[in-house]
C-alpha cells in the first residue's frame, strides 16, 4: 500500500531523516515512536508531499514521490497522493471560518465535485461515528481540543483515504480528551483502516499497531512487532526511551 524506501530529508547540510524505510500493507497499522526531535513528524509530512525529499522514494499505490518531484510542476501528482493519503494534525487545523459540517463538506464538494446534499448526509454519518453529530453547526472555536480532533478525523474520512497519517494526534490534549480521540482511532484500526500513527502513547501503540518503528536522530534504530519492541527492546536508545516514557 505505502512503501517508503531509503527516504532522506536534508535542510542544507543538516540531515533530518537518514535513509528511512517503512512499509504498510492494506489494513495494517504502523506506529512510530521515539524521542522528540527524532524526525517522526517530518517523516509523515514527506509521505504526503508537504515536504520535499532529498533521497529515496515514497510509493503510494501506483504513485511515486521522488527528490525530483516539484510542488508546482507536479501539483497534480501531489494532489492525487493527498487524495489517497489523509493527514490528521497535532493542532487539528480545522477551518475556523466554517462550521463543523461545512469543514467536512468543503473537500468532497470542491475536490470531488460531490453534490452538497449527499456530502452533508455523509458528513453527518461520520460525525455520528466520532460522536460529534450534536455539534454539526458549531464553530471550531466553541469546541474543546478533543472535540476538534474528532471532527478533524471525520473531515479526513470524508475523502475516503486509503491510508491515514496521524501526526501526534493527542499531544495537544489533556488525558481525558486524549482518551476520547484514541478511542476513535482504535475503532478505525479495528475496522481495518490502514494508518501510520506517530504517537507518544505507548499503551496505544502497543494495542493498535501491527508493527512499531523507533525513530531517533533521524534514523530507524529498531523496528518489529509491538510485543518485541515493548517486551524485549534490543537497542540501547529504545530501552532508555521506553524507561523515560514509562515514568509519564
Amino acid at each position: 500500500m505505502i512503501a517508503v524506501e531509503q527516504l532522506t530529508k536534508r535542510h542544507g547540510a543538516l540531515t533530518i531523516l537518514d535513509q528511512l524505510s517503512l512499509t504498510v500493507q492494506r489494513g495494517e497499522v504502523a506506529a512510530i515512536i521515539g524521542p522528540s526531535g527524532g524526525g517522526k513528524s517530518t517523516f509523515l509530512r514527506c509521505i504526503n508531499g508537504l515536504e520535499r525529499i532529498q533521497g529515496g522514494r515514497v510509493t503510494v499505490g501506483d504513485l511515486q514521490l521522488v527528490p525530483e518531484t516539484d510542488p508546482r510542476r507536479d501539483a497534480a501528482l501531489l494532489q492525487a497522493v493527498r487524495k489517497t493519503v489523509g493527514f490528521v494534525f497535532q493542532q487539528f487545523n480545522l477551518f475556523p471560518h466554517l462550521d463543523v459540517l461545512a469543514n467536512l463538506v468543503e473537500a468532497p464538494v470542491q475536490v470531488n465535485g460531490e453534490d452538497r446534499g449527499s456530502a452533508e448526509a455523509r458528513g453527518m454519518q461520520l460525525l455520528e461515528r466520532v460522536g460529534m453529530a450534536h455539534k454539526a453547526r458549531a464553530y471550531p472555536k466553541d469546541l474543546s481540543g478533543g472535540q476538534q480532533q474528532r471532527v478533524a478525523i471525520a473531515r479526513t474520512l470524508t475523502m475516503r483515504p486509503d491510508c491515514i497519517l496521524f501526526d501526534e494526534p493527542t499531544s495537544a490534549l489533556d488525558p481525558v480528551m486524549a482518551g476520547e480521540v484514541l478511542k476513535v482511532i482504535t475503532d478505525l484500526a479495528r475496522g481495518h483502516q490502514t494508518m501510520i500513527v506517530v504517537t507518544h502513547s505507548m499503551s496505544f501503540a502497543r494495542e493498535v499497531s501491527d508493527h512499531v518503528h523507533v525513530f531517533a536522530g533521524g534514523k530507524d534504530v529498531e523496528h518489529g512487532p509491538p510485543a518485541q519492541i515493548f517486551g524485549d527492546p534490543q537497542h540501547e536508545i529504545t530501552r532508555a526511551f521506553l524507561k523515560d516514557a514509562g515514568r509519564d
Partner: peptide, 13 residues
C-alpha cells in the same frame, strides 16, 4: 497549518 490542512484534503493550491 490552514493551507497544509486544505492541501492534505486533496485541494489544489
Amino acid at each position: 497549518g490552514q493551507l497544509e490542512a486544505a492541501l492534505s484534503l486533496g485541494m489544489s493550491r
